[in-house]
């Protein structure tokens, strides 16, 4: 049975991707909020924000916007899994001789692909609005790697409400705090402008290290320790979310 993990995951991922291709609005709506924030911060608020760097403001805040894109995209991951649970197709799969982890992996991989598509749209809009980077291929790969890890981690987080929620709102509502998290970080304003306890939280939460790493990579500046802290956060969150989600899944199907 385990011999089929890859082919079953491939088949089921193909199914979910087809869902997205038939309603591409989920990719676009995922990108709309971040793009609106991009416009708001660059053209309305940005002029009054002093980042203390020589960077243009869009270069400064794009990394935070990318994380917001992922945080809003994974709401659909939970939503799609929830619909499968409700519709009876989940039980049909469970009563079939297919590899059991494949059902979840298909949703996670679909989430990854859909979120990457949304990120490409947001970066495209940012380029039109004046985002510029001299990042090398290696810098881009490093940035993409961190974004992929972050998406995988949050996708496994999204699996939990997807499996357990009782209503659609419950399945997708968990993402709001995640969307909000970048606002209390270095994503939009430097953390040293915040009052003590807030600044402490901002400096020690995962978004700041990830944002600082991405910003450094795009600006071709040394990323120092930030990249290791960012990686530790992403991998740590990924492992914890994966273990917790699969535990919930096993409990659900046994």
């Amino acid at each position: 049975m385990t011999a089929h993990v890859l082919s079953d995951t491939g088949t089921l991922t193909g199914r979910s991707l087809r869902h997205i291709l038939r309603s591409p609005d989920t990719i676009i709506t995922t990108a709309i909020t971040p793009i609106a924030l991009l416009l708001l911060f660059v053209y309305v608020l940005g002029g009054a924000i002093n980042t203390g760097t020589g960077e243009s403001y869009i270069n400064y805040m794009l990394p935070g916007i990318l994380l917001i894109t992922i945080a809003s995209g994974i709401a659909y991951t939970a939503y799609r899994l929830f619909l499968d649970m409700q519709g009876g197709i989940f039980e049909r799969f469970q009563s079939m001789p297919i590899s059991r982890p494949s059902v979840l992996w298909a949703h996670v991989l679909t989430s990854l692909i859909a979120n990457l598509a949304s990120l490409v749209i947001v970066i495209g809009v940012a380029l039109i609005m004046g985002f510029r980077t001299g990042a090398s291929v290696v810098d881009w790969l490093a940035a993409a790697g961190i974004l992929v890890l972050f998406t995988l981690a949050l996708s496994w987080v999204a699996v939990m409400p997807g499996l357990t929620a009782k209503t659609i709102d419950g399945a997708s509502g968990f993402s709001y705090p995640l969307i909000f998290l970048p606002f209390i970080s270095s994503a939009f304003v430097p953390t040293d402008s915040m009052p003590g306890p807030v600044a402490w939280f901002a400096e020690n939460q995962p978004v700041t290290s990830i944002v600082n790493t991405l910003r450094g990579l795009f600006a071709q500046q040394p990323v120092g320790n930030d990249i290791w802290i960012a990686l530790a956060w992403c991998v740590g969150l990924l492992v914890v979310a994966y273990v917790a989600a699969t535990a919930i899944y096993r409990k659900k199907i046994s």
Binding site: R18, S23, G87, G88, E91, R92, M96, P97
Partner: peptide, 20 residues
């Protein structure tokens, strides 16, 4: 797993994928 290879289930609420 052997049971699943031998059966199929049609549930009370038709479990077809409406998007496909």
């Amino acid at each position: 797993a052997d049971v699943r290879r031998s059966i199929s289930l049609t549930g009370q609420f038709a479990a077809v994928d409406g998007v496909l």
